[in-house]
Measured scan of single mutants.
Amino acid sequence: KMTIRVKGKELARRIAKEMKDRNLKVEIHEHGDEVILEIE
Rank of each mutant, 00 (worst) to 15 (best):
K1M: 07
K1C: 15
K1I: 08
K1L: 04
K1R: 13
K1Y: 08
K1G: 14
M2H: 14
M2G: 10
M2Y: 05
M2K: 14
M2I: 15
M2R: 15
M2D: 10
M2L: 13
T3W: 06
T3A: 07
T3L: 12
T3Q: 12
T3I: 15
T3G: 06
T3R: 13
T3K: 10
T3S: 07
T3N: 08
T3P: 06
T3D: 05
I4Y: 01
I4C: 14
I4E: 06
I4V: 09
I4W: 01
I4Q: 03
I4T: 02
I4K: 03
R5C: 15
R5K: 12
R5V: 15
R5F: 04
R5N: 09
R5L: 11
R5P: 06
V6L: 07
V6P: 00
V6S: 02
K7I: 11
K7H: 12
K7T: 08
K7W: 05
G8C: 15
G8D: 15
G8A: 05
G8W: 06
G8S: 14
K9P: 11
K9E: 09
K9F: 05
K9I: 15
K9N: 08
K9W: 10
K9M: 14
K9Q: 09
E10P: 01
E10H: 09
E10Q: 07
E10I: 04
E10F: 03
L11K: 09
L11M: 08
L11A: 10
L11W: 01
L11P: 04
A12Y: 00
A12C: 03
A12R: 00
A12K: 01
A12D: 02
A12P: 03
A12I: 04
A12G: 09
R13N: 14
R13S: 12
R13D: 14
R13T: 13
R13A: 14
R14P: 03
R14A: 13
R14T: 10
R14Q: 14
R14S: 09
R14W: 05
R14H: 11
I15A: 00
I15L: 11
I15V: 05
I15H: 00
I15Y: 01
I15K: 00
I15R: 00
I15C: 14
A16M: 09
A16T: 05
A16H: 04
A16E: 08
A16V: 11
A16G: 03
A16Q: 04
K17F: 01
K17Y: 01
K17A: 12
K17G: 06
K17P: 01
E18L: 10
E18I: 14
E18W: 12
E18T: 10
M19R: 01
M19A: 07
M19N: 01
M19T: 02
M19P: 00
M19E: 01
M19Y: 12
K20Q: 14
K20N: 11
K20S: 13
K20Y: 07
K20F: 10
D21P: 00
D21S: 08
D21I: 04
D21Y: 02
D21N: 09
D21E: 13
D21K: 13
D21H: 05
D21V: 04
D21F: 02
R22M: 10
R22S: 05
R22T: 03
R22F: 06
N23F: 09
N23K: 08
N23R: 06
N23I: 03
L24V: 08
L24M: 11
L24C: 12
L24N: 03
L24D: 02
L24K: 04
L24I: 12
L24Y: 13
K25A: 08
K25E: 07
K25N: 11
K25H: 12
K25V: 10
K25T: 10
V26P: 01
V26K: 01
V26M: 03
V26A: 01
E27F: 11
E27D: 09
E27S: 13
I28P: 01
I28S: 04
I28R: 03
I28G: 03
I28Q: 04
H29W: 13
H29C: 15
H29Y: 14
H29T: 13
H29E: 06
H29I: 14
E30V: 13
E30R: 08
E30W: 14
E30H: 09
E30S: 08
H31G: 07
H31F: 14
H31S: 12
G32M: 06
G32K: 07
G32S: 05
G32C: 13
G32R: 06
G32V: 05
D33H: 06
D33W: 05
D33S: 07
D33K: 06
D33T: 07
D33M: 06
D33L: 07
D33C: 05
D33Q: 05
E34Y: 15
E34W: 15
E34G: 04
E34S: 08
E34K: 05
V35C: 12
V35Y: 15
V35Q: 05
V35G: 02
V35R: 02
V35N: 02
V35I: 14
I36Y: 10
I36V: 11
I36M: 06
I36Q: 03
I36P: 01
I36A: 02
I36T: 07
I36N: 02
I36W: 14
I36R: 04
I36F: 10
I36K: 03
L37D: 00
L37H: 00
L37I: 13
L37N: 00
L37Q: 01
L37M: 05
E38N: 07
E38V: 15
E38I: 15
E38P: 00
E38L: 14
I39Y: 04
I39K: 00
I39C: 15
I39T: 02
I39L: 04
I39M: 03
I39A: 03
I39R: 00
I39F: 07
E40F: 15
E40R: 11
E40H: 11
E40T: 15
E40Q: 12
